[in-house]
Design a protein around this nucleic acid. Structure first.
Lengths: 256, 256
DNA sequence: TCGACTTTGTGCATCCGTTCACAAGCGGTA
DNA sequence: TACCGCTTGTGAACGGATGCACAAAGTCGA
């Protein structure tokens, strides 16, 4: 019965007691940005950069400098006034807060086009997320290794997930199967789900779902295309505001 | 030079004049939800449902009923008090606002694992987004059809995008190539970009970028795993609040 | 040792989005 | 026709996130 993860909290890093209340207080939007900062910082570290100011980092991450400092302040005060931040220090603290000091075993369900792509990443981008199990309904796929991992039958989800202590389930199935797969993952003790299926999943309160919805993304872009067209029409009709939208097609203006 | 899309605004639907100001006022979050409502409504229509109340629709979409009504109010008043909404009517109005009454030609750049998956969708989920061009740097791939469309060399982006009036560019390249590809798309007149590369793109003001970042999604989930572990530790130590988090592993509790 | 300069961390005002609560409006019924 | 119950649409309160501006705090050079 090795499913209740993180029971003993010996997580390599000292784990200061204040972290608990801190972690609970960090707004979700800030968490997402912290992940971005982490990537930028890692890149800097790889290039030998050892120190960085909030100004530099914020530009590289594409956010406001004040917002960046506020985000960092959620996890503690690790900067030096008049100097900036030590890249290594910041990286390790963000990793700690994001829970990246331990590995998170990932299961991918649905080995179609997308499932293949995900499995072949072999450990998700930005290590620490080893894919340890693959599932599909198709009996012909079972046993065949994809990205080095053999595909299991979907009926074995519970057993396999418990055995391999899967923390994160990725749903890459067709829409009709998604809710059923989700239910099975939940009953296997998986509390975090990344859902690629265009379906609104119903889950218990203690399960965290994040969805990646290509159709929605495309439609948001479509909305902006339409809005642009409308604005252009308004402007050319002399209705619109004196906006500074230079709609030049040939311009390759890159913002500094 | 047929690049300035939507010049004449004969968009099949009457296109009420008030729409312009409306579209500009709709918050982005609401736009994303409208896309979700649209999908749910389409599903209902397929099942022969003709009318729906805000309560029903909001449950199916997993949002607050009041929020749903406010979202719908952004696009106009198309409900009937005491009755609800006509499914067909709502579908057509949401489609109109989202600009789905016309097709949006899509180009996918980077035909690796993900690019393959995207190309093979053959017209993105939820029609209206035909993939009309594929690009890659690899000369070995050029000419080979993927999902029925031959791959072009990346150097031909500008010409091909202009010719096929691409409105939306999808970047599925490795990180180092992303910015360069983005620049080329922009100079080809593409104003909407969906970016799968874990890179912060720099673009001019008139270009809309949406990013899908798997690493960030995973790390947000990781954060929640860590937070859970901390909370569990606090609770078992008698520190935490009397939260109702029944961490039962066997429970398959589906919220109504 | 002292002062000038740089950059962090944060209180505060502002803005945007969510939620509540209720009046307005519509269909059905007597 | 007049009433009743139901559901929409929205004004207003609320809460959370964003951006500003500045004090606190450190480094560097004289």
């Amino acid at each position: 019965m090795a499913s209740q993860r993180g029971e003993g909290e010996t997580t390599t890093t000292p784990a200061e007691p204040a972290d608990r209340e801190r972690a609970r207080a960090i707004p979700e939007a800030a968490v997402a940005r912290l992940a971005v900062y982490l990537r930028v910082l890692s890149g800097m570290a790889d290039q030998g950069v050892t120190a960085v100011s909030s100004e530099e980092l914020s530009q590289a991450a594409g956010v406001n400098a004040a917002k960046l400092r506020k985000d960092l302040s959620y996890i503690g005060s690790y900067g030096t006034r008049g100097v900036g931040y030590d890249v290594e220090v910041l990286v390790s603290h963000i990793e700690r807060i994001l829970g990246l000091t331990r590995n998170h075993s990932v299961a991918v369900v649905g080995i179609g086009n997308l499932g293949h792509a995900l499995a072949n990443y072999g450990g998700f981008p930005g290590r620490g997320f080893p894919v340890t199990a693959l599932f599909d309904v198709d009996a012909d796929l079972v046993g065949i290794p994809v990205g080095g991992i053999p595909v299991n039958h979907i009926d074995d989800i519970t057993a396999v997930c418990l055995e391999r202590e899967v923390s994160i389930g990725v749903i890459a199935t067709p829409p009709p199967a998604a809710q059923s797969v989700c239910d099975r993952l939940v009953s296997a003790g998986v509390q975090c789900i990344l859902n690629f299926a265009p379906v609104v999943l119903q889950v218990p309160d203690n399960v965290e779902v994040r969805k990646v919805d290509l159709a929605v993304e495309m439609q948001i872009l479509s909305f902006h295309v339409a809005r642009r067209a409308d604005e252009a029409a308004s402007v050319s009709a002399g209705i619109g505001p004196a906006g500074n939208n230079g709609l030049g097609v040939d311009g390759m203006v890159i913002r500094p």
